[in-house]
Design a protein around this nucleic acid. Sequence first.
DNA 1: GCGCAGATTGACGCTGTGTCAAGCGATTCC
DNA 2: GGAATCGCTTGACACAGCGTCAATCTGCGC
Lengths: 195, 195
Amino acid sequence: MSEKTQDTRRRILEATRDALLSGEGAGVRMADIARRAGVSRQALYLHFANRAELLVATTRFVDEEQDVDARLAASRSAASGRERLARFIEAWGGYIPEIHPMARPLLAVYETDDAAREAWDDRMRAVREGCAAAVAALETDGDLAPELSAKDATDLLWGLLSVRNWEQWRFGARWSQKKYLAMVQRLAERALVGE
Amino acid sequence: MSEKTQDTRRRILEATRDALLSGEGAGVRMADIARRAGVSRQALYLHFANRAELLVATTRFVDEEQDVDARLAASRSAASGRERLARFIEAWGGYIPEIHPMARPLLAVYETDDAAREAWDDRMRAVREGCAAAVAALETDGDLAPELSAKDATDLLWGLLSVRNWEQWRFGARWSQKKYLAMVQRLAERALVGE
DNA sequence: GCGCAGATTGACGCTGTGTCAAGCGATTCC
DNA sequence: GGAATCGCTTGACACAGCGTCAATCTGCGC
């Protein structure tokens, strides 16, 4: 891959990100992206096999820009399990709004597009690992509700922190981001921590 | 509308329901439905303006068959607020699996199709009313967590009981329907009821 | 100057939705 | 018994958007 290749590729990714962020939402077409990148529609296919792959690459690109790993890692330094849980929710819940514009079109084709599903599931598995780590920390402290297995607690938390739930509460119920975070914190605490 | 018209319409609705139930999922095409109904593809358009409208009509049709209103109403006879909450979760949570095959393709076009969004939102508003009633009953008993307003509690419950959450826990986490119900019951109790 | 990589251009195939016009059989109306 | 009407069929078509292909162009390394 030459420097030029990398440059074009980058421009395409930025164009995709910007197109998605510009509010068009799920209706962003390959032709739109190409125009925005100042490149022919066919050039997109020289760099990405199809639309799904391009979307996936774009989420990864944005993840790197935003340094999501570092954000999620921050919760690791928490002193207690309960604090770690809170820090993780804060980190992930605060990150959702940033990736949501990218996530939306991906979710829109989730059912019909194998590549999109694969990519989304892959990212969500990473979130689940974060959930599992927080639950493990709780368990170590003896703070995990005794009636919950670690697996069930992880899945419970994972579900609470889903992007779909964020959409539901943020837009369906019209909660502010701040309120969303506060409510989910409270909910997770009550759901996972033993009395 | 003649008897024959009604008959054809009914056959189309049944064919749509069956096609959706037969596992094809969201990928059911107009042509498939027509073939199954033993009718020309164009006949579908004589009865329904477009695909979304047909899907919407099918969910209504199934709702009537299943008598969803009666199911949800059953919770109304509960003696206490807490029992009413439990009965409502049981009724709605138990109904989701039945309508899910119909709901899936509707949700798939939710973003792009106004009619579908309208219809789905309408049905979900009905669920929210059920949530609000359960929360009101809790409040009357003085069992609602004091830090929650009735509205927030309603939205919280509404979110927990969303179809997306059911999908997440049922398929993402691979919980059984029984486990889903038990977990959501526990979660709702802890989330809404004051100590 | 040669050759190749990266990009462009323009055309095409495909799928699935929705539209249109002509026609056909059964029922109804007088 | 003929005409009008209704419900449906048949076959063709337009359109959007994705993905593909072949031919061509441009610029760089050597």
